[in-house]
Nucleic acid binder design. Structure first.
Lengths: 137, 137
DNA sequence: GTGTTTGCAAAGTGTTTGCAATTTA
DNA sequence: TAAATTGCAAACACTTTGCAAACAC
């Protein structure tokens, strides 16, 4: 099924990103990158490591999420002005947001098409275009 | 120039929305609705009333912003996972977000066109589509 | 060994809440 | 006067920070 990563070596992935493969980073990276596309908050990820019987402090989860984001292993998504979501899919794509359950979901590639974009105001440059399709459930 | 509201009567606006025109609500509504399209956070609005030498507590600013939103006088916009923005333009439109200055700006009507939208996942319904064009300045 | 990373607990944001005092109608 | 609204201060949720101990190389 998943032929992209016959045996995903999280340690090399971290090394290539210039991050020391510490016990904590390895644990988090495994959860994040060995299970397909994921959308997590710090609290969610922290709960997951705990469940896996590994001890990583919440502060380290926060730090690690930001380091991974800086290293382009994760992308930060803003949908809720109360918590931060991180997406393991760093390619260009958009999102569904389930407003009741606070769950974020990728919109399959190519299903959103933008046929017109505005000129950015003078002196500005477009960094990214984010589309969030909010869902009533 | 602005012929839409020869003399904008904030008091009636509030009454029509089913909100008692209290001193505080009137002060906030004047700031919000008598100056064209505005994008504010609670803190920004609170600072503005203070500057106008009117006393409105921050808690009341928060309450009022939510009441106005519930009454469809404002719309809440999520662009920053740290603060809430409220837009006095409640019609369908999209936004520029200046990432350096944390400023939100309307994209003029019709300048964003979405030519394809995904099917919502089974059991869900699309509530709204938000497009945020992030700017590097 | 040396510099990096971690965990803790404390501090920091932005926001909400409980409740007595005040205001509106 | 009855019901709605306000302001305060305390509580909250989420996130960041300072620093000593632990770890990676």
């Amino acid at each position: 099924m998943d032929t992209q990563r016959p045996y995903s070596n999280v340690i090399n992935q971290l090394r290539e990103a210039g991050l020391r493969p510490t016990r904590q980073r390895i644990a988090l990276a495994k959860i994040l990158f060995e299970g397909g596309n994921r959308h997590v908050t710090a609290e969610m990820l922290h709960a997951e490591v705990q469940n896996a019987k590994m001890r990583v402090s919440l502060a380290t989860v926060y730090n690690t999420l930001h380091q991974f984001t800086a290293a382009n292993l994760l992308r930060e998504i803003v949908v809720d002005s109360q918590r931060c979501y991180f997406d393991t899919n760093v390619s260009d794509h958009h999102h569904f947001f389930h407003e009741k359950s606070n769950l974020l979901e990728d919109i399959p590639e190519g299903q959103v098409e933008i046929s017109a974009l505005p000129q950015p105001p003078a002196g500005s440059e477009i960094t990214r275009v984010d589309v969030v399709v909010k869902l009533s459930d």
